[in-house]
Amino acid sequence: MIEKAAIFVLPGVILLSAILMLRLGKRGGEAFVRGARSGLSTTVSLIPAMLMLTVGLTMFTASGAVEWLAKSLSSVCGFLGIPSELLPLIVTRPVSGSASTTTFADLIAAHGADSPAGLAASVMMGSSDTLIYVISVYFTGAKGVRGTRHAFPVAAIVMVICVLLSCYLCRVLL
C-alpha cells in the first residue's frame, strides 16, 4: 500500500508541473528554463566544497578509523542496549551515504532483516541521514559564512538520540 503510494509521488509532481506549465503557456516554459539554469550554476558552485569534503571523507573511510571506532565503542553499546552488530552502521551512517547503504545491506544479509539487530538497523537507517554531508552542502549555499556554529554538535546529539531511540522502539514495538 505504502510502496504503491510512493511510486506515484514523483510522476505526480512532474505531471502537476507539466499541467501548470501548459496553463501558464509561454511564461511556464520560460520559468522552467530560468530555474534549470540557476540549478546548473548552483551545481557548479558546489564543486570546490564538495571536492574538499569528499577527499576528506574518503581518506577517513580508507584509514581504518571506522573499524577502530566501532571496536572501541562496543563496550559502551552493550551498556546502552544497542546490539553490537549495529556499530559499523552507526559509525558510517553520519559520514557517507553509499558506505552506510553497503554496510546496512551487509548487516541485514548477515543477521536477517527481521532479526532484532536487523530491525533496529532498519529503523536507524530510516530515521537518520548523512549529517556531515547534508550540513556541509547546505552551508555552501550561504556564501561568506565562516563556520557552521552549533550545527554539527546539535546534529551529532540528535544522531545519538536517534540510535538509542531506534533500538528502544524496536524492543518495545516490534
Partner: peptide, 23 residues
C-alpha cells in the same frame, strides 16, 4: 568521486530547480 557525485547531481538539480520555478 566528488566530480562524479556533482555530475550525478547536476541533472536532478537542473530539473528540480526548473520545476520549482514553474510551481
Amino acid at each position: 568521486k566528488a566530480i562524479s557525485l556533482v555530475l550525478s547531481l547536476a541533472g536532478a538539480m537542473c530539473l528540480w530547480s526548473g520545476i520549482m520555478e514553474v510551481l
